[in-house]
């Protein structure tokens, strides 16, 4: 699946997007975040804000317990500040 990062999540991860294959057992957004945090200090720092980080699955807002099965694109970003 493709992961996209925006705003300060993007800055901390150091990437705008990447393709990953999450291992079996990573079934929800929250589990994906846990798996990403274990990938290195940049990810750890990006996701340290925990629940404050928002996610979208295939361009729709998704809660931490949302299933990522079949997702093509998952995005992570801070609370939105448009308008």
């Amino acid at each position: 699946m493709k992961l996209k990062y925006f705003a300060w999540v993007r800055e901390r991860v150091g990437l705008a997007e990447e393709d990953v294959d999450a291992p079996a057992g990573v079934a929800t957004v929250a589990e994906l975040v846990d798996w990403l945090r274990a990938r290195g200090p940049d990810y750890e720092r990006a996701f340290a804000a925990g629940p404050a980080i928002r996610a979208a699955i295939d361009k729709r807002h998704a809660k931490p317990d949302a299933s990522i099965a079949g997702a093509g694109e998952i995005a992570f970003f801070p609370p939105m500040t448009g308008g």
Binding site: A7, A56, A75, F77, M80, T81, G82, G83
Partner: peptide
């Protein structure tokens, strides 16, 4: 529309 846009449209200001 404005209230929802502020909190759910994916824009970030610097």
């Amino acid at each position: 529309l404005m209230d929802y846009l502020k909190t759910s449209a994916p824009f970030w200001k610097q």
